[in-house]
Amino acid sequence: MELGTHAGFIIASYALCILTVLVLVAWVRIDKANQERALKELAEQGISRARREHESR
């Protein structure tokens, strides 16, 4: 695969795009882990959505 004289620019732009996508994916996954951990902690304290639905009935 020959990229010619401007290989640096091509590789840099692809690398930056991949990096941006990786940051987005990481953000989404870390955020998900955080929220699920918070939900779990709340459930351990006995506060969960299931119980509330039960109460409201």
Partner: peptide, 11 residues
């Protein structure tokens, strides 16, 4: 544009 046209595929 030579090979730089390959940037177009993400740009």
């Amino acid at each position: 544009q030579g090979n730089t046209v390959r940037i177009m595929y993400i740009h």
